[in-house]
Design a protein around this nucleic acid. Structure first.
Lengths: 236, 236
DNA sequence: TGTACATCAGTGAACGCGCGTTCACTGATGTAC
DNA sequence: TGTACATCAGTGAACGCGCGTTCACTGATGTAC
């Protein structure tokens, strides 16, 4: 009967999810480099080799965790962008930045899995580069509301050339901007790169623990950085 | 004879240096998490246990590498600050930023040893926190030439409180500022935090490799970020 | 100048550990007739 | 309803590997008298 086949499939999916969840827990505790299949198996209460029925190996599991995490972060930013769709651009920038930080602070090691030191003896598949770009899409739409940014001229020039040379990037930018854009694509992209640098700067320092013992709230620094950017590019 | 004792001492120091240099090479190749004593020993051409004559263990070696690296980075920034002592503050900020990036780009994994994902199963001694602060001293002096920064008000307030409550920080700020300061300590400190966030943002993204395939030069982004900061705080 | 002793860098064997992965297998569940 | 077969999750033993660290030791060098 097809019903039994489906039940098995659903069970398989459940077990896969449990494995991934436990693996994330281990990463949250000791970092991505400390992830081991035998450790996961032990925590689930199953023999080590059993996991090979669900994943081809440790690297396969790690890759899937990374891909899932990119998707999860992208979803969080998308949601923040959509929820604030009617707000002024400056407020939207803050909203997306808060969502970025909230996602990272909830599971610092998971954030570092995406944007931290590469895991030794693990080669990330090439596709992950595209995933990283997708994360930044909501920022692109918001920063397209900017007016101008004379200081960014050198960076603009480099990015304009990039857009001109790589069709995939040109498509991505055109799609994300939409018809409401009041700014040239390369100006918006310069804003996105800057926003990304500042987001990652604040959030990774916090995730690594380097703000500890300094009398400041990371959220305050992040808000300042986003306000300064909004000032520079002329967001309302 | 005392001469022989000294010769032995010098030899000991040479071997210690060789061990550290080889260890840095391994970190440069595979990252800090992949550092192993046996690997270092093999590369030097010596048995594993021999290294215990020079370091108490793997963590001891790692700690010394970190402490050395903080000192090396601090030296590089100090040198850049001193060399540009007569230049306008904006130019000095660029000079220190370039030195920071140059140091990190020369050995990305060494930079990530200081500011990247913590190494699994390694507990950093508490002293490293003070070392991290020392690195930022040259920036403090430069940003003390700023005029004002209304946007930074919330961050200023937090930092002013920190300065007031922790004497060690107050001393550090007073010493680094000197009498030439035209700005309140908390404003200068807000500038330093911001500069640090942006430096680390650009440099760590580059070190991890996330800029790869994006049509931009990290140096351009860094220069833009420093110029934007100089604009915001009113550096000449 | 010669001899007994001290120092100390480096060795090789060994310990216990955990890892990723393979392999032949068991045993429960469902399917076909 | 009963029987032969297929599917597949999970097991336990095993392989080869590399790790940090300890220990008793060797052998060269220098020191004291």
């Amino acid at each position: 009967m097809a019903e039994a086949v489906e039940r098995r499939k659903r069970y398989r999916e459940q077990v896969r999810d449990e494995i991934k969840q436990v693996a994330l827990g281990q990463i949250a505790r000791d970092g991505a480099a400390a992830l081991t299949l035998t450790g996961v198996a032990k925590e689930i209460g199953v023999s080590g080799p059993a996991l090979y029925k669900y994943f081809a190996g440790r690297d396969d599991l790690l890759t899937e965790l990374i891909v899932d995490s990119y998707a999860s972060l992208a979803d969080a930013l998308d949601a923040a962008g959509s929820a604030s769709a009617e707000a002024p651009a400056r407020e939207r920038l803050h909203a997306v930045a808060r969502a970025y930080r909230a996602w990272a602070v909830a599971q610092p090691h998971r954030y570092l899995l995406l944007a931290g030191t590469p895991v030794p003896r693990y080669d990330a598949p090439a596709e992950t580069v595209d995933r990283a770009r997708a994360v930044l899409a909501p920022l692109l739409e918001i920063l397209a509301a900017g007016r101008s940014w004379p200081r960014a001229e050198p960076l603009r020039a480099e990015l304009a050339e990039w857009i001109a040379e790589v069709p995939a990037v040109a498509d991505w930018v055109r799609d994300a901007l939409g018809p409401a854009a009041t700014t040239a694509p390369d100006v918006a992209l310069a804003g996105v790169v800057t926003a990304w640098v500042r987001l990652h700067g604040v959030v990774s320092i916090e995730a690594v623990g380097l703000f500890n013992g300094m009398g400041l709230r990371p959220a305050t620094v992040l808000a300042l950085e986003m306000d300064a950017l909004a000032d520079a590019v002329g967001l309302d």
